[in-house]
Structure formats: structure tokens, C-alpha cells
Design a protein around this nucleic acid. Structure first.
Lengths: 124, 124
DNA sequence: CAGAATCCCATCTGATACTG
DNA sequence: CAGTATCAGATGGGATTCTG
């Protein structure tokens, strides 16, 4: 076991941290965790605002990292399902904690922003 | 209490989630949580690789969101200290969980990437 | 349906230089 | 020391078009 330190420049764990914390990855993993296996279009609808490009791109990265499993069914029209791997499952709790934090504290943050803006208005 | 849902487009909690999960914010909050009050240059050294610009920029955003408190001491040369607010403290646990996850599972992810790359080599 | 491919703009991010 | 200002490259992300 080496010493991986995300506070060190260029450490792979830092990149991984960026990746799993990225805009769409957080939401994608969250959705897959909540609903289980999910199709491309379903996922797209649930993540309101995601483009096909980012959906595909993020899903690929997650697949490559071993967090998501992609299963193609030989049907016409094609059907593809995405689901969390066991490794991906281990990310559910920490990610959910973060998501819940943002929901629970958004109002405090909104207030803090107002205060800050008033406080720094005009003068810097 | 309204219903804030980060899965909805344009919801402030989604933006907040992006912000607290961003590259430098995660590490900055982590460091401030570990060491307590910290000066600009100290912080810069601990977050190996961060530029002055990103340090300032991220710190400002965190300050505006009410997560970090900035204190200026009237000395020459100037001294400025940053520390977590009580709101910022509540983010420590979830963020640390995420950081620890990335450290604990980086090797599995690295292996998964190798397998993926081999599996998809040449043929798509 | 589930993408791949392409074009293009906006933002993010970093390196450099300058200042109170 | 703790920034600010500026420039430029990398990346994110959207719209559109096309395919098995």
C-alpha cells in the first residue's frame, strides 16, 4: 500500500477525487444508486439539463473507472442499461451525504451570499 | 422549507453542489478543517500545485458562501488568515469521507482503467 | 434507442507580471 | 505578504447532424 495523497500535485487520487466530484458524475451516480439499472434516455430525463454528449462522456469515464457497468442487449432497437458496480455502490453513501448537505444548507448559503454582496457593495 | 432538488435544472442546490465539489474547494476546505486558521501562503504550500489566482478565487467564493471566514490583521506586512465558519465545519465530515474514498479505492480504479483500456483497444 | 462526430462558444485554469 | 491584472491555452458543455 503506497501513500496516496490528494494534496500532492499529480497524485492519481487527486484526479479521481476531481472526477467523482464533477458536475454530472455526482448526479449520475446518485441516480443510478437510487433507481438501480437505468437506460440512457431514462437517465437523461432524470438529470434535467444534461446533454447527450455529457451523458455519454461521463458515463464512459465512470465505466472506465469501474464504477458503472454498461450492458448492451442485442435487440432492435438497441437497449443499453447502466448500473453501479460493487465499487460504485461504495460511493453512494459519501456522495449522498454531500448531496444532502447541499440541500440542507442551501438557504444558509443563499443568505450568506446576500450578506456578502451587501457588505462588499461599492467598496471592495 | 421549499423543495430544493439538485436533480432539477437551475436549482441553486445543484450549483452549490458543483461549487463545494470543485477541484480546489474540496482540498481547501479539507486543509482548513485539519489545521485551523491558516495564512494565504501556508495554504498555497499545502495545496501543492494551486496557482495564486485559483487560491484567491476559490477562497473568495467560499467566503461569499459563508463557509470560510477571512480575517485581515492591520500589520505590515499584511497578514490574512482563513478559517472555517461553523457552517464550513459541517462540511468537513462529508468532504473527508469523499477524500478518503478516493484514497482507499484509487488502486481498484487504476486497475479498472487498465482492464478497460485493454478491453477496448483497437476495436471500439 | 443509443449513441458518434463535428462545430463552436463559454468558462476554467494556469503562468506571468505588477502593486499596496 | 497577499493579493490584482492580464493573457492564452485547455476543457466543459451545447447544438446539430448522422447512423446501426
Amino acid at each position: 500500500m503506497e501513500s496516496w495523497d490528494p494534496y500532492t500535485r499529480g497524485c492519481p487520487s487527486r484526479d479521481l477525487l476531481d472526477q467523482i466530484g464533477s458536475k454530472w458524475a455526482v448526479l449520475m451516480l446518485g441516480e443510478l444508486g437510487k433507481h438501480g439499472a437505468c437506460r440512457f434516455t431514462q437517465l437523461r430525463q432524470r438529470l434535467a439539463g444534461v446533454s447527450e454528449k455529457m451523458l455519454t462522456q461521463t458515463l464512459r469515464t465512470l465505466e472506465r473507472d469501474g464504477l458503472v457497468r454498461r450492458t448492451v442487449y442485442a435487440e432492435v432497437p438497441a437497449r443499453v442499461e447502466y448500473e453501479l458496480t460493487s465499487l460504485g455502490q461504495t460511493l453512494r453513501a459519501p456522495l449522498r451525504a454531500l448531496t444532502e448537505w447541499s440541500v440542507r444548507h442551501i438557504e444558509e448559503v443563499l443568505e450568506a451570499r446576500d450578506e456578502y454582496d451587501v457588505r462588499t457593495e461599492g467598496a471592495g
